[in-house]
C-alpha cells in the first residue's frame, strides 16, 4: 500500500467510492425533485422521508415475506410510487395555483408524519439489511479492494439517471412531459391528459427516491431518520446545480458526493458542511446555480 500525502490509498479510494455512492443518491433524489418541481411547481420536502420508506419497504419485504433484494428493487419503488400518487391525488392537487410555499409546507408536514410514525414503530436505531447473495465479496484492484455491491450501486444508479435523462430528452413521452411543463393549458388542448401526467410524474419522482432507498439499505442501516438530514443536503445540491437541467442535476449530485468523500479523507471535521460551503460559494459567484436556467 503506497501512502499518499500521509493517507493510505485504501482509505482514499474507499471514501471516494462511498462519495460516488452518496453522489449517486444525491443525483437520483435531486433528479426526482427537479422533475416534480417542473410539473407540479412543488418542492417535495417529503422526498427524504420517501427515500427512507423505500429502504424500509425492502427491509419489510425481506423480514415479513422473505422477499429478497431483487424483487424489492422493483416492488418497493412501485409501492412508494403508488403511495405518492395517492398523496398527489388527494392533497397536492388541491394546491394548484397557490403560492409555492404551501407545497413546501404540506410536504414538510407529510415528512413529519411519515418519519414520526416510523420512529414510533422502530425507534431511532437501525435495522440491518443483508447484502444480496450475488453481490457479496469484492475484487482486489491492486490499489484498492472494491466491494461488488458498492460498484453495483454506482453503476446501477448512474444507469437509472442516464435512462431518465434519455426518456425525458429523447423520447416522445419525454417531449409530451416537457411540453406539459412548459405550457399545461396548450398541452391539454392537444388532447393530452395533463392531470394524469402530473400524477404519474409525482409517482415517478418519489419512486426514484424509493429506489435510492433500496440501494442504500445494504450499505447504511435502515433508520427512520435516514432521509431527514439527507434531504437538506439534496436541497443544497439542487441550489448548486439548479433545477433547470436534467444532466446538471445528475452531474452536480455525483460531483458533490465525490467532493464530500474526499473531504472525509483530508479534513474530516468539514465533511458535514462542505456541500453547504460550496453552495455559499456558488451563490456568491453564480447565483443561478452552475447549470441553472432562470425559473
Amino acid at each position: 500500500m503506497i501512502p499518499l500525502l500521509g493517507i493510505s490509498t485504501q482509505a482514499l479510494f474507499g471514501q471516494l467510492l462511498l462519495g460516488l455512492i452518496n453522489g449517486a443518491f444525491y443525483a437520483m433524489l435531486s433528479l426526482g425533485l427537479a422533475v416534480i418541481f417542473g410539473m407540479l411547481n412543488i418542492v417535495n420536502f417529503a422526498h427524504g422521508a420517501l427515500y427512507m420508506v423505500g429502504a424500509f419497504a425492502a427491509w419489510f419485504l425481506l423480514s415479513a415475506f422473505h422477499i429478497g433484494y431483487w424483487p424489492a428493487l422493483i416492488l418497493a419503488p412501485l409501492g412508494v410510487a403508488l403511495f405518492g400518487m395517492i398523496i398527489e391525488r388527494t392533497m397536492l392537487k388541491r394546491l394548484a395555483g397557490l403560492d409555492h410555499i404551501y407545497g413546501l409546507l404540506l410536504t414538510f408536514g407529510l415528512a413529519l408524519i411519515i418519519q414520526g410514525v416510523f420512529q414510533n414503530q422502530f425507534g431511532a436505531s437501525g435495522q440491518p439489511y443483508p447484502l444480496p447473495e450475488q453481490l457479496k465479496g469484492g475484487t482486489n484492484l491492486g490499489f484498492m479492494y472494491l466491494p461488488t455491491y458498492r460498484a453495483w450501486a454506482v453503476v446501477f444508479s448512474l444507469s437509472v439517471c442516464l435512462f431518465t435523462w434519455f426518456m425525458i430528452e429523447k423520447t416522445r413521452l419525454g417531449a409530451v412531459l416537457r411540453a406539459a411543463t412548459e405550457n399545461p393549458e396548450l398541452t391539454r388542448a392537444f388532447g393530452i391528459n395533463v392531470p394524469r401526467l402530473i400524477t404519474l410524474t409525482y409517482g415517478f419522482g418519489v419512486g426514484l427516491a424509493a429506489l435510492a432507498g433500496v440501494l442504500a439499505a445494504p450499505i447504511y442501516q435502515v433508520r427512520p431518520l435516514m432521509g431527514a438530514d439527507f434531504i437538506i443536503v439534496v436541497f443544497a445540491v439542487v441550489v448548486i446545480g439548479g433545477m433547470g437541467s436534467i444532466l446538471g442535476a445528475i452531474g452536480a449530485g455525483f460531483m458533490l458526493g465525490v467532493v464530500e468523500g474526499l473531504t472525509k479523507v483530508f479534513y474530516p471535521q468539514a465533511a458535514n458542511i462542505v456541500v453547504f460551503v460550496i453552495m455559499v460559494a456558488v451563490l456568491l459567484v453564480k447565483p443561478t446555480g452552475l447549470f441553472g436556467k432562470k425559473l
Binding site: L105, L106, G109, L112, I113, G116
Partner: peptide, 15 residues
C-alpha cells in the same frame, strides 16, 4: 406522537 401531530397540523392548516 408529537412529531406526527405537528405534521398533521401542518397538513390540515395548509389544506
Amino acid at each position: 406522537w408529537m412529531t406526527v401531530i405537528q405534521g398533521a397540523i401542518f397538513v390540515v392548516c395548509v389544506l
